[in-house]
Amino acid sequence: MTAMTPGSNIPLSAARVAVDVAAPVRLDVSGLLLTADGKVRSDDDFIFYNQPAGPGVTYRSGGGTAPDAIVVDTSAVPAGIEKIVVTASPDAAGQSFQGIEPTATVRNADDGSALATFTPPNLGSETALVVVEVYLRNGAWKVRAVGQGYANGLSGIATDFGVSVEEPAAPAAAPQAPQPPVAPMAPVP
């Protein structure tokens, strides 16, 4: 097993890999399928707990007792997809990674053997991370340690990669009390 550092990469020795991301707090883990321009083709390429399956990529819940994971079947990833980024954010709203050290473990999805681990260093105000990416280069699949943080949460990551993020509706303005009618002014002589 390889301990990765930011920017390092290794070739994948398995066609199906699971990337689980563990931390001392519950995390939301997701995956985005990206084309050569670094964007999703549609919102269907954003894989997470509410949309757990896409072409060649699935979300696997840890059930609260084990880490959530993104499973990539490189043989089933559609043509035109060159990268799957695996992201994580603390489940608690507004919580940052300050004092939390998430660790991604890349495993052979068929036998569970660990291929690599990566713990992003020096985290602080980030509320979401691109942890690792599984990518295609010259016909071979690899994994790269990224550790890029976002202070604007998962919506910042999703927006950067082309996912449409619906903003919460603004509260409706309170109806205003009707104003009493204004008496007409008497004409000035």
Rank of each mutant, 00 (worst) to 15 (best):
P189M: 10
V131K: 08
A88N: 07
W141A: 02
G139V: 00
D45E: 11
G31H: 08
D43I: 13
A92N: 05
E126N: 07
V130F: 08
T2N: 11
Y150Q: 11
D37Q: 13
L33W: 03
A22L: 08
D28M: 06
V143H: 02
V165N: 13
A186Y: 09
G149D: 10
F118K: 03
T5K: 13
V21C: 07
T65R: 06
D37G: 12
D20G: 00
D160A: 15
A114H: 02
R144T: 04
T65H: 06
A104D: 05
A114L: 01
N122R: 14
A145Y: 08
P187N: 12
P78Q: 10
Y150H: 12
D20N: 11
N122Q: 14
D44Y: 13
D68T: 00
N138I: 00
G156A: 15
A177R: 15
A22Y: 12
P121Q: 07
I47N: 11
P78L: 05
V25H: 08
G64E: 01
P175S: 08
V17A: 07
M1N: 14
Y59M: 05
N50D: 14
S96F: 05
P102M: 13
P67F: 05
P180A: 14
P102N: 13
D110W: 05
V134N: 12
V57P: 12
A172V: 13
Y49I: 06
D28G: 01
P187K: 09
P121V: 05
V85Q: 13
A140P: 01
M4R: 06
I70C: 04
E133Y: 01
V134R: 07
A174P: 12
A174L: 15
I100D: 05
P184Y: 01
A170L: 15
T5S: 09
L129Q: 08
E166S: 14
I100C: 08
P6I: 00
A14T: 09
Q176H: 09
G80D: 11
S155A: 15
A88T: 09
A173W: 07
D110P: 00
A76F: 01
A140S: 11
V106N: 02
A88E: 09
T117V: 00
P78N: 10
P121I: 02
A116G: 02
K39M: 13
G56D: 03
Y59I: 04
S13N: 08
V77P: 07
